[in-house]
Amino acid sequence: MHENGFGKIGENMNSMLHDQDASARSDAGIIVMSMFFAGILIVAFTTSPIASGTEIGERAPIFTAKATNGNGWESFAFEDLLDLSWTWNSTEESPWVAVEFLDIDCGYCKSSATEVGEWAQMYNAEQWPGPDVVFIAIAVGFLGDHTRAELLEFRTQYNNNFLYVDDLDVSIAKDWDVGATPTYFLVQPDGIVAWNSQATNGLGWDAKEEKSVPLNGFDDGYVQLNEAIEQLTMLNGGE
């Protein structure tokens, strides 16, 4: 009888201690979870983060690589082309960036190369009423092993007087999620992707309203790079 009584008291004490431990853990849990969510809420309400990626409205991945303007290969940083403080209402004339991923063995890249070269000159000319558009070609090695000399030869052959970036190891293509050539991107001066020829061909990013807008393909419904440039850079009346 005595032993049973003490045993019961022991059990009750043990149970009370376990309850206290559990209570300490849950109290601590409530305190730290409140702190965590308060921190998250403050960050969430005071910032509007933009994801990095190549969908329209995302921030284009930056890269550094060797590039040529026709005279040797030098280090090039994509970031140097950008003006992160740019907004649609900026008075500064920061250029937009047209990015072409090409493979010198790809048939369509060859057939459109001359036209792309002409666009590069046209959208930088005095007669063009919109903001300047800087063209860069990122040469990938999807279809075979090429050399830098072959890239230079291709550039000269098609009169592409703009920067050619060496991505023969396709590392930049991987970051930009490019699986086929040619793929074109139009990037706002602040680095936001305004148009992606493959993923969402018929949609562009309205820099002023910060939302996607439908684009027109003038001939066949398929939007070409020049059509995206003309519609998006002049979307709200141009400069």
Binding site: F36, G39, V43, T47, S48, P49, L84, S85, G191
Partner: peptide
């Protein structure tokens, strides 16, 4: 731990601000 938490929260805030294009 509180100081570690707040300084980490601030780096997350900076991460988001930088993605907006701020410095």
């Amino acid at each position: 731990c509180l100081g570690g938490f707040t300084v980490s929260a601030q780096t997350l805030w900076m991460h988001n601000k930088l993605s907006e294009g701020a410095s």
